[in-house]
Design a protein around this nucleic acid. Structure first.
Length: 403
RNA sequence: GCGUCGGUGGUAGAGUGGUCAAUUACAUCAGACUGUAAAUCUGACGCCUUCGGGCUACGCAGGUUCAAAUCCUGCCCGGCGCA
């Protein structure tokens, strides 16, 4: 993997560039489409290509459970398995330590509201993930079987799954966890990062895969900065000669804090390595993160919200199931160039949703992914053109005008 | 015509003297969703409300009772059986 910065936006951390992988070039900033189980839900690989997606991210934990990493390895990696020939990434399973752990069965999201109370995290009853210094014990949400993930086993699994870019095994903490826990977890994630790097160097002597470390630290400036410093410095650590190839910035945030937390980190991280903001994909957050120096983003929001009937338009979101759309024969957006808008009306899509037809999910996902991909592409272009802020202002004043 | 079973909120279908404005599901109306436990989840769903409550309701009309969707009588409507 090779990252090149082509243009920086003066007075900010923003930059535009390219990431060259064995499977193609990614023009950054770029939105990474999420295909957790080696499929972007509701879409075929051909549809993903038609959308102009540059890179697909799958999930180690999910592919490990199903169909198993050996099968994916035999298939020639998850990209080949799903007939996606472009650049690929895998997440390490670290997010599942959160989503199946602290977040399981609760309303906590990795992006918490500002007034979310700090929670006692001593009780893990009913959770499917339990974190210790050695690793994470998962209880499969599919069949209840127990599985133990370590930094080393995640590296091995990701080696078999074979993506171009992989993430170190981390713990995504809950944004509502107490400071003390965040700090303890951060130290652990640092130790895990070192173990991942060592294992990765052992497995991948030819450097086929690029390894990204993950910066945690919640909403705490000292923790975020410490993580950026220590993990950033590992690159030149003598005992780990080959350092990280890039950095992931992990949840957890407060809604208003994303931009701030990201810039704390990006001011410190080595400039010449790509930065991937994990799991962020709302328009305003994307603008803020690009401005704060992030190069890659992945998010399930366009596909999940699409499946649930929430569609992006330049005038904000709309819920296509609303009664007012049943006889609205205009497209989702008049000037949208996506397949869905070129062929179908709001009324038709509303009908498909109400009738529980699977095509609803497909058409909605196509539109939302198209919307976000084009948005990030325009952000990239605006860095080259020098009118990023103008574009941001124009877009946000229209998209968020009702909020 | 006789006998019999039944008629409950948009629909299906619980309830069978008070704790019933009435379980539940679906439909409907909204909302949420940010490294996918998610084609999921939450709320509302007779009318009015100063959110305390008030009013009208379980085919229709009477009646019994302190109290009826629930018991009785008549009527109307439907299923089934016999003529």
């Amino acid at each position: 993997m090779k990252f090149s910065i082509e243009k920086k936006l003066e007075g900010t951390l923003a930059r535009a560039g390219t990431i060259e992988t064995q499977n193609g070039v990614i023009e950054t900033p770029a939105f990474v489409v999420v295909g957790t189980k080696a499929t972007v839900k509701a879409l075929t690989a051909e549809q993903i290509r038609s959308l102009g997606a540059q890179v697909v991210l799958a999930n180690t934990y999910h592919l490990y459970l199903q169909p198993g990493t050996d099968i994916v390895e035999k298939a020639g990696g998850f990209g080949k398995f799903m007939d996606w020939h472009g650049p690929t990434m895998t997440d390490s399973g670290g997010f599942q330590a959160f989503s199946l752990g602290a977040a399981f069965g609760s309303a906590v999201s990795k992006v918490a509201s500002a007034d979310a109370p700090v929670e006692d995290i001593s009780s893990t009853a009913g959770q499917l993930a339990k974190v210790t210094d050695e690793g994470v014990t998962f209880k499969s949400h599919i069949d209840g079987s127990t599985h133990f993930f370590t930094p080393e086993s995640s590296m091995e699994a990701q080696w078999k799954i074979g993506a171009d870019m992989i993430f170190a095994f981390d713990e995504c903490t809950s944004p509502t966890a107490p400071y003390e826990y965040q700090k303890k977890s951060l130290d652990r994630t640092y130790e895990w990062a070192k173990r991942c790097l060592a294992k990765h160097n052992e497995l991948d002597s030819e450097k086929k895969q690029a390894l990204f470390a993950v910066i945690q630290g919640g909403r705490h400036q000292d923790l975020r900065e410490e993580a950026a410093k220590t993990l950033g410095a590992l690159a030149s650590s003598p005992e780990l000669a080959e350092g990280f190839d890039g950095y992931g910035i992990g949840g957890s945030f407060t809604k208003d804090d994303i931009a701030t937390a990201v810039s704390w980190v990006n001011k410190i991280l080595p400039e010449e390595k790509p930065r991937h903001l994990l799991g962020i994909g709302e328009p305003r957050d994307l603008f803020d993160a690009v401005e704060a120096g992030c190069d890659l983003f992945d998010c399930i929001a366009p596909t999940r919200m699409g499946r649930h009937g929430t569609l992006h338009t330049h005038d904000g979101r709309l819920n296509i199931r609303n009664a007012k759309f049943v006889d609205d024969f205009t497209p989702i957006e008049n000037d949208c160039s996506c397949y869905t808008c070129a062929h179908h009306s709001r009324a038709y899509i509303a009908h498909l949703f109400r009738a529980d037809e699977m095509t609803a999910a497909t058409l909605a996902s196509i539109h939302n992914i198209h919307f976000i991909l084009r948005l990030v592409e325009k952000m990239r272009q605006s860095i080259f053109d020098g009118d990023f802020f103008e574009f941001k202002k124009d877009f946000c004043s229209r998209y968020y005008k009702e909020v």
